Simulated scan of single mutants.
Amino acid sequence: MYRLRGRDRRPGRREGPVPAGRPAAPVTVSGARVVTVGYFSAKEKDHLALMDAADTALTARGARIVGRIVQRRGVSAGGVGKTALPYSSRTLLSSGKVRELAEVCEATGADLVVFVAALTEHQQRVLAEVLGRPAVRLSAVLTAV
């Protein structure tokens, strides 16, 4: 009979333990030029209303909206089966949309990129590195009053 080994066969981590969640730096949007980014499935019919609500909430906090990018998932026949998955686990968006976002940020001189969708800390770090400016989720901005 086959017996499971008590030890995993994968090699152990070479680097030290992952530090516990670091507290995020407070994000101020007052006076900032902001690009809003939405990531929605094709099932979400009123995605423009959600983007408008996000823009309204940000402008109420003193932000100036200078751009808007929307990534729709599952619009084409090939993407319908994968609507629950992000395009990229590193950036949430497709590589082409990230390039488009970087171009919009450069053209408008944006100070901050706010995602309507939830982002992991890793995605925030990668996007901030690629875009050259902080990338945060909307909920973090709205709760940091």
Score class of each variant (00 low, 15 high):
residue 25 A to T: 11
residue 56 T to L: 10
residue 109 G to P: 01
residue 34 V to H: 07
residue 138 L to M: 01
residue 14 R to M: 07
residue 30 S to G: 11
residue 143 T to R: 15
residue 61 R to I: 00
residue 139 S to Y: 11
residue 142 L to T: 08
residue 86 P to H: 08
residue 16 G to D: 08
residue 74 G to F: 04
residue 115 F to G: 03
residue 20 A to S: 10
residue 112 L to N: 07
residue 53 A to H: 12
residue 62 G to V: 03
residue 4 L to C: 11
residue 145 V to P: 14
residue 36 T to M: 06
residue 132 G to T: 04
residue 50 L to K: 15
residue 119 L to N: 02
residue 131 L to H: 02
residue 11 P to I: 09
residue 102 A to V: 09
residue 30 S to V: 10
residue 58 L to V: 05
residue 121 E to P: 08
residue 104 V to Y: 04
residue 54 A to F: 05
residue 20 A to C: 01
residue 99 R to G: 07
residue 49 A to K: 15
residue 8 D to Y: 09
residue 12 G to Y: 08
residue 52 D to M: 08
residue 118 A to H: 12
residue 72 R to Q: 06
residue 77 A to L: 13
residue 140 A to R: 11
residue 135 A to H: 09
residue 134 P to V: 03
residue 130 V to T: 15
residue 66 V to G: 09
residue 98 V to M: 07
residue 3 R to M: 10
residue 120 T to Q: 04
residue 11 P to F: 03
residue 51 M to G: 05
residue 110 A to E: 12
residue 113 V to C: 09
residue 110 A to M: 09
residue 134 P to K: 03
residue 145 V to D: 13
residue 65 I to N: 03
residue 66 V to Y: 07
residue 19 P to M: 00
residue 89 S to M: 11
residue 35 V to E: 09
residue 71 Q to L: 02
residue 64 R to N: 13
residue 105 C to N: 13
residue 118 A to E: 15
residue 2 Y to E: 14
residue 19 P to K: 02
residue 84 A to C: 04
residue 53 A to G: 12
residue 93 L to N: 07
residue 82 K to H: 10
residue 6 G to P: 08
residue 79 G to L: 00
residue 52 D to Y: 04
residue 139 S to L: 13
residue 90 R to Y: 06
residue 17 P to K: 05
residue 52 D to W: 04
residue 81 G to Y: 06
residue 85 L to G: 01
residue 33 R to H: 13
residue 138 L to H: 02
residue 127 L to H: 06
residue 78 G to V: 06
residue 45 K to N: 11
residue 46 D to I: 09
residue 53 A to Q: 15
residue 80 V to N: 06
residue 43 K to I: 08
residue 129 E to N: 10
residue 30 S to F: 06
residue 74 G to Q: 04
residue 23 P to V: 12
residue 37 V to R: 04
residue 131 L to W: 02
residue 138 L to R: 01
residue 59 T to S: 13
residue 68 R to C: 07
residue 85 L to V: 05
residue 81 G to T: 05
residue 136 V to I: 04
residue 60 A to G: 13
residue 53 A to L: 12
residue 57 A to I: 08
residue 123 Q to R: 04
residue 107 A to P: 01
residue 115 F to W: 01
residue 10 R to T: 14
residue 34 V to S: 08
residue 74 G to R: 03
residue 124 Q to I: 00
residue 140 A to Y: 03
residue 109 G to S: 01
residue 109 G to M: 01
residue 29 V to C: 00
residue 23 P to D: 12
residue 6 G to I: 09
residue 119 L to A: 05
residue 42 A to D: 14
residue 36 T to D: 05
residue 112 L to E: 06
residue 10 R to D: 11
residue 103 E to A: 14
residue 56 T to H: 10
residue 116 V to F: 04
residue 3 R to N: 11
residue 76 S to T: 15
residue 77 A to H: 09
residue 144 A to W: 01
residue 34 V to C: 12
residue 84 A to T: 12
residue 110 A to I: 10
residue 124 Q to P: 00
residue 81 G to W: 07
residue 68 R to D: 09
residue 62 G to L: 03
residue 19 P to R: 06
residue 24 A to I: 05
residue 67 G to T: 12
residue 25 A to W: 01
residue 137 R to W: 02
residue 107 A to D: 13
residue 139 S to C: 11
residue 45 K to S: 14
residue 124 Q to F: 00
residue 34 V to M: 10
residue 90 R to H: 11
residue 134 P to C: 02
residue 100 E to S: 11
residue 42 A to E: 15
residue 99 R to C: 06
residue 69 I to D: 10
residue 88 S to I: 06
residue 100 E to Y: 01
residue 60 A to N: 13
residue 20 A to V: 09
residue 103 E to V: 02
